[in-house]
């Protein structure tokens, strides 16, 4: 919203500041619940609200006990390990398959593009509970329910649409004359691919991989059905923690996750800008 012009009337001014006030409140609604978790996770007592001691900034009101619990409790440590293992493998599978598919789909001669694309991104559209139910029935039948393989395959399937969309978006602005000129200068198709295509699509692939990682890392519905305690991930552990007895350890975990998301958000944003720079699209 542009600054107020000098000739603005009083009414204009009032409306302008009211509007800004409303927007500030909405932004507060968006961000406050996330920020409020951070101080609460340092609570000295198992309580979900600010204690008197916390409000008076008494150091005794604060403690690291929930972080200590998180880092020593085998339930949580197992969950952290599982989260990374499952996210790592499902990211590799989904990034590899979806990048190949994006390269194929972006070719102009590809037949039935819309239909195939619709099928390939269906895991993003189908409600998770339905995907979870279907996978639960089917994976139990082929003995994949409650195994790492089952969970990794399920997460990879859920993540592929995100990679596919991200890489396809990179390829849309792809300048075909670059590969054509490389080929006309005598480069073999393999050389064109590795020396021209790969460097250009890498930022897209990396941000697609980040999306895939986050999809698996945050996923909680499918893992509840396809996984078991052995494959528990951080969200699995959080879910059962909230359902059974909510301890501030969950808030400590949440705080750590918030910082991880800030990190991821920054990397994706940097990649996006780099990608736009590489392709010569000026940042808006």
């Amino acid at each position: 919203m542009a600054a107020l012009p000098p000739y603005a009337t009083i009414g204009d001014r009032i409306w302008h500041y009211t509007f800004l006030g409303i927007c500030a409140l909405i932004f507060l609604f968006l961000i406050f619940p996330i920020l409020v978790i951070i101080p609460l996770s340092f609570n000295a007592i198992p309580y979900f609200s600010f204690t008197h001691k916390m409000l008076t900034l008494d150091p005794a009101g604060y403690s690291l006990r929930w972080y200590h619990d998180f880092f020593t409790n085998p339930n949580w440590q197992g969950a952290v390990k599982n989260s990374f293992i499952i996210a790592f493998f499902s990211t590799i599978i989904s990034t590899f398959l979806a990048t190949l598919a994006a390269l194929g789909l972006s070719r102009s001669e590809f037949p039935y593009k819309t239909t195939i694309m619709g099928i390939l991104i269906s895991p993003m559209i189908v409600p998770l509970i339905i995907a979870a139910a279907g996978m639960f029935f089917f994976y139990s039948r082929i003995n994949l329910q409650g195994t790492y393989t089952g969970v990794i395959l399920a997460h990879a399937a859920l993540a592929t649409p995100f990679v596919l969309i991200t890489v396809t978006a990179t390829l849309v602005g792809f300048d075909k004359s670059l590969t054509q000129s490389a080929a006309s200068l005598g480069a073999s198709p393999a050389r064109v691919f590795f020396e021209i295509t790969v460097p250009l699509i890498t930022p897209g692939v990396v941000s697609g991989a980040l999306f895939a990682f986050v999809t698996s890392f945050d996923e909680v519905v499918v893992i509840l059905f396809v996984g078991s305690y052995k494959q528990r991930t951080i969200p699995w552990q959080m879910f059962s923690g909230i359902r059974e007895q909510i301890s501030p350890t969950i808030l400590a975990v949440a705080t750590i996750l918030i910082f991880i998301s800030i990190l991821l958000l920054t990397s994706v944003e940097l990649l996006r800008r780099r990608n736009e720079r590489l392709r010569g699209i000026s940042s808006t």
Binding site: P33, I34, V36, I37, F217, D218, V220, P235, M238, F239, I242, I246, I250, L251, A254, L257, I258, S261
Partner: peptide, 8 residues
Amino acid sequence: SLLVRTSA
């Protein structure tokens, strides 16, 4: 994470 926001 969805669970972070829900627990918030």
